[in-house]
């Protein structure tokens, strides 16, 4: 139940905590919690269940170590750079993604709730329903988080391209 999803669990924990050691601790703690709670699990989706525990454990750790990594809640006015995406073309987006570091930085710059939706959707191929189950929000919220995460990613890459062209 736990080991087949170890990669997905570590990947989610790593994206949420931002640190390898923290992510390993989170996965170990989540595995133990899952093991203890296994008798009470009657669902069919073991992966979503385990990832829910990983997510909650990661957020508990982040809450405990707030000084470790300050996260700012997303504010449309503060963080939104409206208009940047208007200059984005499919080709420029793909060019901006060629740099792996740049792409990682773009995802890391996203607010936690947007980043987790993006990682679960694109890296683990989870459905909106499964992501909603893991994040404990309605499916519509998942849809809007994904749309906003993608818009922010597009802005980030478009901005990077413009700066590169200017220099």
């Amino acid at each position: 139940m736990i080991l087949p999803h170890l990669d997905a669990a570590y990947n989610l924990a790593r994206w949420l905590t931002g640190h390898d050691q923290d992510a390993q601790d989170v996965v170990q703690e989540a595995s133990l919690r899952a093991f203890r709670a296994f008798d009470g699990f009657y669902g069919e989706n073991g992966r979503a269940w385990l990832l829910t525990i990983v997510r909650n454990t990661a957020y508990n750790l982040l809450q405990k170590n707030k000084s470790l990594r300050q996260t700012t809640p997303f504010d449309e006015e503060l963080h939104g750079n409206a208009g940047a995406s208007e200059c984005a073309t499919p080709l420029s987006l793909l060019r901006g993604a060629e740099d792996e570091q740049n792409l990682r930085a773009a995802v890391e710059a996203l607010p936690d709730e947007f980043r987790e939706a993006l990682v679960l959707r694109h890296q683990d191929g989870l459905s909106y329903r499964e992501i909603a189950l893991i994040a404990g929000v309605p499916t519509g919220t998942v849809m809007s988080r994904l749309a906003r995460a993608r818009a922010r990613l597009k802005d980030f890459l478009a901005k990077g391209n413009r700066e590169e062209e200017a220099s």
Binding site: R14, D20, L94, K154
Partner: peptide
Amino acid sequence: EEQRALGQVTRAVPRYPAPAGLRERIL
């Protein structure tokens, strides 16, 4: 077309593979 390209970009975000020792540590 833009959203499709963006989909390609997001799928290209590299994963973090689980470290070799993690499996044994958990076991």
